[in-house]
């Protein structure tokens, strides 16, 4: 009895762990090559808002506030430049990849799978059905109007 149970347990677990069908692989959200830069940018915006709020609270003197704000805006510019560099690199990489036998697309766009880099770097746009804004990434919600996007592509 115990023996049968044990064997059954082992077999079931082994089957579960080892037999994986292709459709069992999880859908992978596309990886954005500029994701970490966008994060940094969001952080800088937050710092700006914080500084502004502390100024309104009366904790920061006007001079301090202006100086801090100027610094942050400078940082913001630097990040924006970096994002553009990455984006233009991607575009040129994509162009080369489109040409047959060009191999350095993957090296320039360090993404998890080739399929993903295609959707990111490609000319495909993801358009919001509500307001018509378009994005280079498939979003769950529109970045403009906030309505739900159903991965409609144009």
């Amino acid at each position: 009895m115990i023996l049968a149970l044990s064997i059954g347990l082992v077999v079931v677990v082994l089957l579960y762990v080892l037999v994986i069908r292709p459709q069992d692989l999880p859908f992978v959200e596309p990886h954005s090559p500029t994701g970490h830069l966008d994060e940094r940018k969001a952080a800088i915006y937050e710092n700006l808002r914080d500084a502004n709020f502390e100024f309104l609270m009366g904790k920061l003197s006007p001079d301090d506030y202006q100086a801090t704000k100027a610094d942050l805006q400078q940082e913001l510019n630097a990040v924006n430049v970096e994002i553009q560099t990455v984006a233009s690199k991607l575009d040129s990489g994509k162009a080369k990849a489109a040409a047959p036998k060009s191999s350095n697309a993957k090296a320039q766009a360090p993404t998890s799978t080739p399929a993903v880099s295609e959707s990111v770097a490609g000319t495909q746009r993801f358009v919001c059905g509500n307001c018509g804004a378009s994005f280079p990434l498939p979003l769950k919600f529109c970045g403009e109007c906030g309505s739900k996007m159903d991965e409609a592509r144009a």
Partner: peptide
């Protein structure tokens, strides 16, 4: 909240 409201946050004024 979603979408653009991400940017509303605590900022007020200015």
């Amino acid at each position: 909240q979603t979408g653009r409201t991400k940017l509303v946050s605590t900022q007020i004024g200015d």
